[in-house]
Simulated assay, not measured.
Amino acid sequence: MSTGKIQFAEQDGTFALKFVGEVRLTLCSALDATIEKIFGAGNFSSIIIDLTEASNIDSTTLGLLAKLSILSRQKIGLLPTLVTTNPDITRLLESMGFERVFNMVGTPVPCPECLRDLPAQDLSEALVKTKVLEAHRILMGLNEHNREAFRDLVSALERH
């Protein structure tokens, strides 16, 4: 299994995230902390998520991306831009209903040399479970398909 990474940059209130390789649960705590940082910034004006080099994105990561979109609409009234050129990733995003909560485009992020890797974070098992549960609840809220797809997982997490 190839490892993934998430890179981050900010300039004049525009925030950029770039997902590379297989982006999975292990990167979600750093992603969630970065989402909090973005929306805590006083100069936030837009966000771009570049998925052109992502080979796989798990459901927890997708839930955090949905959270990012919801917060963007609440804070500044704009949908984030999501860049995807991989047909498999695009199909996955569309199956989750992301075309309704993101501006989806096929042009990569300018200034890739400006991006830096997000730092790894160690979280307790309980905190990881909380993050996974939150991400999947957000995904379930996007559409009926997601509600059906993740109902059993969310129920299982809530029981334990």
Rank of each mutant, 00 (worst) to 15 (best):
1 M>S: 11
7 Q>C: 13
8 F>N: 10
8 F>R: 09
9 A>G: 12
11 Q>W: 11
12 D>N: 14
14 T>L: 11
14 T>E: 12
16 A>Q: 12
19 F>S: 01
19 F>C: 08
22 E>M: 09
22 E>T: 10
24 R>K: 14
29 S>G: 05
29 S>Y: 06
34 T>P: 03
36 E>Q: 09
39 F>Q: 01
41 A>D: 15
41 A>T: 08
41 A>E: 04
42 G>Y: 02
47 I>D: 00
51 L>I: 03
54 A>N: 01
55 S>W: 05
58 D>I: 06
59 S>N: 07
59 S>P: 04
60 T>K: 02
60 T>F: 02
60 T>C: 08
60 T>G: 05
63 G>P: 02
67 K>R: 09
70 I>Y: 02
70 I>N: 09
70 I>C: 01
71 L>S: 10
73 R>G: 01
76 I>Q: 11
76 I>R: 06
78 L>A: 11
79 L>T: 03
80 P>F: 03
80 P>I: 03
81 T>C: 05
81 T>G: 02
82 L>S: 04
84 T>V: 15
84 T>N: 12
84 T>Q: 08
85 T>P: 02
85 T>L: 12
86 N>Q: 15
87 P>G: 10
88 D>K: 14
90 T>N: 15
91 R>T: 15
91 R>Q: 15
95 S>D: 15
97 G>R: 04
101 V>Q: 01
101 V>E: 05
101 V>R: 01
101 V>P: 00
103 N>D: 08
103 N>C: 00
104 M>V: 10
108 P>K: 06
108 P>M: 08
110 P>K: 11
111 C>V: 11
112 P>E: 10
113 E>M: 07
115 L>A: 07
117 D>Y: 04
117 D>L: 08
118 L>E: 03
119 P>R: 08
123 L>A: 04
125 E>N: 00
127 L>E: 11
127 L>T: 12
128 V>N: 03
131 K>D: 11
131 K>A: 09
132 V>F: 07
132 V>Q: 06
134 E>R: 14
134 E>S: 15
135 A>W: 03
135 A>H: 04
137 R>I: 11
138 I>K: 07
145 H>V: 14
146 N>E: 12
147 R>L: 14
149 A>Q: 11
151 R>H: 12
152 D>R: 12
152 D>M: 13
152 D>Q: 14
156 A>D: 09
158 E>Q: 13
160 H>L: 07
160 H>I: 09
